[in-house]
Amino acid sequence: MRELICIVCPRGCRLKINDKMMVTGNYCKRGETYARNEITKPMRMITSTVVIESKILDRLPVCTDKPIPKEQIFAVMEAINQVVVKAPIKIHDVIIENVLNLGVNIIATRTVEI
């Protein structure tokens, strides 16, 4: 039996899910789906920064363009930490393509001109 807080809407139902994937405590169907997904394959978006060589900024904010498996969070962070980019960078430029072969790109979320 696992306990979860549903994050689909701000109500934050306290859910319980057992080994047979039976969900209780949910106010709506979306909570049921969330609990099942969260147990089997939890996914997360990562936002971070990379080192940028620029006259005006030291760090470029980046984001995964799709969620990645939760257990890969720190591995993806390690990949992000190795990167050094040079200005100019345009918002949504791909910074790391297909990071760790997960089919997910790391993209810039800010334009840095110089």
Partner: peptide, 8 residues
């Protein structure tokens, strides 16, 4: 510094 310092 984050990211192991870098050149910065």
């Amino acid at each position: 510094k984050t990211k192991g310092g870098g050149q910065h």
